[in-house]
Amino acid sequence: MASPTSPPAPRSRSRKPLGKMTDWFRQTLLKQSKKMPVSSESSPNDVSESTSQDSPPAPSCSSVTSPTPTPTHEGTSSSGRWSRDYDVCVCHSEEDLAIAQELVSYLECGAASLRCFLQLRDAAPGGAIVSELCQALSSSHCRVLLITPGFLKDPWCRYQMLQALSEAPGSEGRTIPLLSGLSRAAYPAELRFMYFVDGRGPEGGFRQVQEAVVRYLQTLS
């Protein structure tokens, strides 16, 4: 009679727990690797520094907000002659327009090429008279007062004269009186502290007016 054989060893039972442990160990390693940083030697600060070095630098506040410099007239300084729109403003009465035009033509066509403001030619159409007169005075370096019998009768001429004196009462050379068709006794009392140009002189006093304006402009350079 054959001897009974011993039952085979339960190999399948021993392999199943080992496979489960291997899977559990692999999943644990995967979870830990996800929680670990990319490199044990690098820190978040190092990562940010490397990315900031690769990216282009952001523009500074000065480069963004600084305006483009305004070009000056032919490279000259805006604080000199070109800081105002006109070199001279000619104040005259309406009945003296012909004389004023001759004076302006003389000043503009001369060697200095002075920039002149003539009210009936250069005033903005539709603008208020008071604002236009004040703007003309403030936009000009010098003011020529063409003092005639019509000037003394015109209230707007007297307004311009007083306005010019109030803006620059102590500035020598800015206000230039040109006396024409009047005697010395008729010279306005408000201008008695100023020398005037006599219109009975050579070229009607135009040359003296031009020299006075050019002399003042030279003080601005």
Rank of each mutant, 00 (worst) to 15 (best):
E41S: 14
V104G: 02
R81W: 06
S180N: 08
R192S: 12
W156S: 13
A212F: 03
L29N: 11
S93A: 14
D85P: 01
G205E: 10
S63T: 09
S62G: 07
P37I: 04
Y216M: 07
A2L: 14
E41K: 08
A58K: 05
Q53E: 13
L103N: 02
S55T: 12
S3F: 12
L145S: 01
F193N: 14
M194R: 08
M161E: 13
P7F: 14
V38E: 14
S140Q: 00
L178K: 00
L145V: 02
C61E: 11
T219P: 03
A164S: 15
L152A: 00
P59I: 04
T72F: 06
Q27R: 15
S63Y: 05
Q210V: 01
L146N: 02
L114G: 00
R115I: 00
L178Y: 01
R81Q: 11
G110S: 14
G204A: 06
L178I: 06
S105I: 06
S221G: 07
S166W: 08
Q101Y: 10
T72E: 11
T5N: 11
L146A: 01
W24Q: 12
V197S: 05
E167P: 00
M36S: 12
L107E: 10
G205M: 04
D87W: 03
M161N: 06
Q210Y: 02
T51E: 12
Y86V: 07
S39K: 03
G80H: 04
P177F: 04
D23I: 13
K31R: 13
D46M: 05
A185Y: 07
A168C: 15
T5R: 15
I147F: 07
S50Y: 05
R115P: 00
G150A: 15
H92C: 06
S78M: 10
V213Q: 02
R192T: 15
H92D: 12
Q135L: 09
S66V: 06
F117A: 01
T219E: 09
Y195G: 09
Y159A: 07
R174N: 08
G181D: 09
G127R: 02
F151H: 01
Y86L: 07
A136R: 00
D154N: 09
L133C: 06
C109H: 10
L107S: 00
Y106I: 02
E167G: 01
Y86E: 12
E94Q: 15
L97Y: 10
E172A: 12
V38N: 14
S113C: 11
L162Q: 14
T76E: 15
A9S: 14
S43I: 09
C109S: 13
S83T: 07
S48V: 13
L217T: 01
S77E: 13
Q119A: 10
P177S: 09
T148P: 00
G181N: 04
